[in-house]
Design a protein around this nucleic acid. Sequence first.
DNA 1: CGGGTGTTTGAATAATGTCAAACCGAGTGG
DNA 2: CCACTCGGTTTGACATTATTCAAACACCCG
Lengths: 213, 213
Amino acid sequence: MKKFKKGDRVLPAGTHIYRPGEESGEMYNLLDGWVALYRILPAGRRQILEFALPGHFFGYHPNAEAATAHGAQCLTDVSVCVFPRRGFPELLRKHPEMGMALNSIAAHDIDRAYDHITNVGARSARERVANLLLELCLRVTRQKNSTTWSDTVDIPLAQHDIADALGLTSVYVSQMLKSLREQKVLVFRNGQLQILDHAALADLADLDSVPLP
Amino acid sequence: MKKFKKGDRVLPAGTHIYRPGEESGEMYNLLDGWVALYRILPAGRRQILEFALPGHFFGYHPNAEAATAHGAQCLTDVSVCVFPRRGFPELLRKHPEMGMALNSIAAHDIDRAYDHITNVGARSARERVANLLLELCLRVTRQKNSTTWSDTVDIPLAQHDIADALGLTSVYVSQMLKSLREQKVLVFRNGQLQILDHAALADLADLDSVPLP
DNA sequence: CGGGTGTTTGAATAATGTCAAACCGAGTGG
DNA sequence: CCACTCGGTTTGACATTATTCAAACACCCG
């Protein structure tokens, strides 16, 4: 696996790792920072499909050299581990356990995509914001292997990122955040999330997994 | 692969193959009919995540015996091929090419899930309906290996199924269908889709792949 | 100090949901 | 063959949610 690796790469915030319609011929494992997987519609609207956190594997497409429908942009300064797509099938053939690992990752990605569909399709704006922030908070916490809640969690998103992920307008997101703040559920400011009322938030967000007391 | 198979099963429309929260211990390959993968929210709302057409493989979850967050319900009379989940890892270990095939399937599913997110998150109701119907039409056509457009395509959905997939209300879907009908774009009635104006539809739906002249 | 980007606020507007009633076609029992 | 129910669809009036536009604000950075 290490031999297969092409090398590490450090990228500043804002960089497009690849753009919709491009074929980079590479795959990535995110080492540090946040990346957004997104799509652009002809109308100009941007839809964020997934927030990639450290450990996330992305850029994998099965149909060898097809162009990707989505792009990947760094939300923060980022470091990624790069793999060439070429030769990847051989690698999988030699190491079936890697194929299984990849299956597991893919299944996980599908689950989160289904969560996302549900969030955007079936919930009100308030609930969407609550759900997204809580989910991200859980992912960050889990990733750090924390066994306890921190009082504040870093979530380096702008409000318009949240809007683009949830299919909302940034001004409406602002209003929802204000409402959540006034009702003492959470405070989100300057990329920092602070949860004030866990019970209320979990209730609003309706997350299936409500771990960590 | 055939030896691994557990057997076929024929189910009437409406049957729940598995329900959210259950662990069926089985995986399925849809042979005939349509199946909806869905979720239920505490508010009672149903979100359809994916329409499974013949050939679709579903019910696969990597974390061995975890309960699934979604359910699967037959939209029509259905016949499925059933596999036990138990023993599946061994099978994959013996046949790495199957693992790769599964990866390919999973990547495809992710792509469609991303399409779905984009559709629900970034488009108007009209566009969503147009997009969904065109996509389903393409999938049906492709599946039949037709090289030409049929005048009408069977899409055995009720309007409330469309609504639940797109995060809309069934009465609003009715209005959108009326509008599309009046503007001579398409007619959808009794589970039959008839496309009147391909160009207009493709434009509205903004489908990336616009095949078959 | 000035310019840029992101956030907040308010008012007007458009998109979508809700409720309720009417309609329609398919199946069913008399 | 008819009347009846039943689920799905259609329609209209109205309520709510979310978007648009525009301006003010805040903050960071040069």
